[in-house]
Simulated scan of single mutants.
Amino acid sequence: MRKKTPELREAFIGRFTEHHAFLLTKMLARIDQLSADIADLERAHQRPDRPSGRPPR
């Protein structure tokens, strides 16, 4: 999504207010945090010390 930032800016010229920028910043930050959380979970799931197929207790 971040790779498309210039295209998104161009698409919103004339209809993109400061309020929209604020909301978009919040949404992108949330996506970044969720992506980081998913990466953490994937790393934890692949740890060799955890029995495969079962979540840790």
Rank of each mutant, 00 (worst) to 15 (best):
M1D: 11
M1C: 05
R2C: 09
R2P: 11
K3H: 08
K4C: 11
K4T: 11
K4S: 14
T5I: 07
T5K: 10
T5V: 06
P6E: 01
P6T: 03
E7Q: 06
L8R: 14
L8Q: 10
L8I: 02
L8G: 00
L8W: 02
E10Q: 00
E10T: 00
A11T: 01
A11V: 02
F12Y: 04
F12P: 07
I13V: 00
I13R: 13
I13H: 01
G14I: 02
G14S: 03
F16M: 05
F16T: 06
T17A: 13
T17S: 15
T17Y: 10
E18T: 01
H19G: 14
H19S: 13
H19I: 13
H20L: 10
H20R: 08
H20Y: 11
A21S: 01
A21H: 11
F22N: 14
F22M: 14
L23P: 00
L23Q: 02
L24K: 04
L24N: 05
T25E: 15
M27H: 07
M27A: 15
L28N: 01
L28T: 07
L28E: 02
R30S: 13
D32Q: 14
D32I: 14
D32H: 12
Q33D: 15
Q33R: 15
Q33K: 14
L34G: 00
L34T: 00
L34N: 07
A36V: 00
D37C: 03
D37R: 08
A39G: 04
A39M: 04
A39D: 11
A39Q: 09
D40P: 02
D40Y: 10
D40S: 05
L41P: 07
R43S: 04
R43V: 08
A44T: 00
A44K: 09
A44Y: 02
A44P: 00
A44W: 08
H45S: 14
H45Q: 10
H45Y: 13
H45N: 13
Q46E: 15
Q46F: 13
Q46S: 14
R47H: 05
R47F: 01
P48K: 15
P48I: 15
P48F: 06
P48E: 14
D49C: 05
D49I: 03
R50I: 08
P51Y: 06
P51N: 07
P51A: 07
S52V: 04
S52P: 12
G53K: 06
G53A: 01
G53Y: 10
G53V: 00
G53T: 03
R54W: 02
R54V: 07
P55L: 07
P55A: 07
P55V: 02
P55M: 11
P55N: 12
P56K: 08
P56A: 11
R57K: 13
R57A: 09
R57I: 04
R57S: 08
